[in-house]
Structure formats: structure tokens, C-alpha cells
Simulated assay, not measured.
Amino acid sequence: MMNNGARVRPTLTDLAAFSAIAEHRSFRKAADELGVSRSSLSHAIAALEHSLGTRLLHRTTRSVAPTEAGERLLRRLKPVLQDLDQAIDAVVDDGGHPSGALRINGGEGAMRLLLKQIVPRFLERYPQVSLDLVTDGNLVDIIEQGFDAGIRLAEAVPQDMIAVPFGDDFRFLAVAAPSYLEVAGRPSTPDELRQHRCIRQRLPSGRFYRWEFEKHGHEIVIDVPGALTLNHTMLTIEAAADGLGIAYVPETAARPWLTDGRLVPLLEDWSPRVGGLRLYYSGHRHVPAALRAFINVMQDAS
């Protein structure tokens, strides 16, 4: 039975701790987000439940879930905490500087572009922000993994996310070295790739990447043959430039090799442009000042 005597007003820290635990349904994930220990969170929740005189969380060795009272509190508490964060950020925007850590997850190619085009000017403009860029071939749940944002191709962005364009649309191209084409000939249709030596790429999921082509509304998807399989775009490009076969890669990544003639584009009329990179984040959570500043720098550079 909870204490029904004189109640002590809960602290903002305890309320924020409860909100994080209830949203993540995990003490560990909430502790990672808040940068505190799990034991500290446990003490905070015990103090909060004691001061309110009611249990807020069902806790077992395997799971955490809000009680009915906890759900009611969470629904009322979330907009209050978001308004408070926005008020603090407004003060920062008016007279201070964004600070703290900004965590972004993305593929290697996207991170290379960020490092080249965005990161230098962002760090110069906002030196108090600690930028944590994590390269990952898998499409992760950025909320569950504690990231502020992700950056992926437009087609890979989850539908419930807010997406901000970064860079131009682009296309995938089949490419090969002149030395390979001199011996094997040049394919004139995607179907002819089945008679060629292709360099296959394995996705992080373990599946082979299938090559996609489209012309006048006619789409062809081919699981190409090949004795060589790689799981890294730049290694695939280098292997193609060394004459080991035909590769299918982003045109932007292969551009230096295409420009100096080490690679030749193939089936260009079968290779339409697709949606480019997008920086994305949750529209259901407060947007930190550091992330808004990063988006502003990114848009200024476009």
C-alpha cells in the first residue's frame, strides 16, 4: 500500500525519468538516453511512486509497462515535457548556442557525403555540439537505438518519419572496365547480363542485391550471376575497375572512375534517377536544438 500522507511534489528529473522508461519500456534504454545508471532510475521511480501514492509501472525481470495510472500520467506529461524543451531551446536560439550530443545513423556513402559537405561547417558554427555519427549497413530503428536522426535513401525512410532532402536524386548504373568489355562485349539489354560475369553484392541482411532496371514503364529485376560477391560499394567499384566483371553501383560513388575512363557506363537508358538521400527523424518527439541547427546547415549547403 502506498503512502497516503502529505505528498512531496515530484521533481522534474523524476518525471522525465518516468517518461523515458514508459516510452522505451526499458530501464536500460531509458538510462542510455538520459545518461544515468539504471539504479538511479530505479530510485527515481520509487521516489515518484511514493510521492504520488500510486504505482506507475509494472516491473518484472523481463519487461516494464505502465500501469493504468502510469498511462494516464504519460499522456498528460509528454506534451508538458516537450513544451518545456521547446521553451529552453527558444532561449538557446535567441541568445545562446546549441550544445550537447547529436547522434545520427546512416550508411557509409551517406556519412562520407556528410563529412565532406556538412560536418566541417556545422562544427565550425556550433563547436559546443558533440557530433556522433554511426555507420551501419542495416536499417535500424533510430528511436529504439537512441539516435536523434538517420540518413538513408528516400525509399528506405520509414513512412512515419519526417524526411529532409540531402543532395540530388541519383541513379544506379551498371559499369565495367574497358578491358573487360574488350573481351566479353557490351550488353545492350538487362537480360544480356545473364551471359556476363557480374560482381554481386550481399546486403547486411545476408540477401543478394538484385539489380533493378526500368525503361518506358517496363521494369526488370535481375538476380545476376557471378563468381565474386562483395559487401562493400567501394570494393565493388575497384573490382570492376580491375576488370573482374560488371558492377551495379551508385553513379555518384563511381563518378571518379567514370570521369577518367577506368569504368564505362552500361545500359544508361535503362537506369532512371531515383530519390536521393534523406535525413529523417521522428515527428512524434521533440526536435533538439542541435538537430534543428544541423538541418539548417544541411539546407544552406544544398
Rank of each mutant, 00 (worst) to 15 (best):
G100F: 02
I45E: 06
S271E: 03
G276I: 02
I45R: 12
E108A: 05
S26F: 00
V224M: 05
A69M: 02
R171S: 14
P250Y: 04
R278K: 15
E23N: 11
D141H: 06
A149W: 02
I142F: 03
H43P: 00
L173Y: 10
Q117M: 06
S271Q: 07
E155P: 05
A174R: 08
R25C: 12
H232A: 07
G109E: 09
V140N: 06
S51K: 01
C198H: 00
P10F: 10
E238K: 07
G5E: 13
T61W: 11
F208R: 10
R194D: 09
P79Q: 10
A101E: 03
G276K: 06
S271A: 14
V224K: 05
W257G: 00
L15Y: 05
P265T: 13
W270M: 05
G206F: 09
I142Y: 02
V64T: 12
A154E: 15
C198I: 00
P127N: 10
I88T: 03
E144K: 14
D148V: 08
D269Y: 01
I21T: 03
I246P: 03
L15H: 04
L115Q: 14
P178V: 11
I151F: 04
A47D: 13
S188C: 11
H58C: 04
P66K: 03
D14C: 09
A69I: 00
S179A: 14
R186W: 06
I295H: 07
P178D: 10
D83A: 11
Q82S: 07
V140G: 02
E108P: 01
R200P: 08
V36K: 07
F172A: 14
R207V: 10
L12K: 14
A69D: 10
A149L: 11
A174M: 09
L291N: 04
G275V: 09
L84T: 08
A17F: 01
G106V: 03
S63T: 13
A65E: 14
H50A: 09
P204W: 07
Y281E: 07
I88V: 07
P250C: 05
L15A: 02
R273Q: 14
E49N: 05
A301Q: 10
G276R: 04
A87T: 04
S188G: 12
V8C: 01
I162H: 08
L267V: 12
L123K: 13
F213M: 02
I88L: 10
K215W: 05
T252A: 14
S188A: 15
V297A: 00
F213T: 03
L34T: 00
D14R: 14
L230H: 03
S42G: 10
H196R: 09
G35E: 01
N105D: 01
F294N: 10
V8K: 07
E33I: 04
L181G: 02
T189C: 01
L263W: 05
P165F: 03
R38C: 12
M1W: 06
G275K: 11
L81S: 09
G243C: 08
I222W: 04
P250T: 01
V164H: 09
I151S: 05
T13H: 13
F172C: 14
F147K: 07
R200Q: 12
G137Q: 12
I151G: 08
L139Y: 06
P225M: 07
L193C: 00
R152C: 05
L34W: 00
F208H: 11
R125L: 13
S99K: 12
I222Y: 03
D169I: 04
L123Y: 04
A149P: 08
D93Y: 14
P190C: 02
L291E: 04
P272R: 06
D83Y: 06
P187Q: 12
F122G: 03
E251P: 10
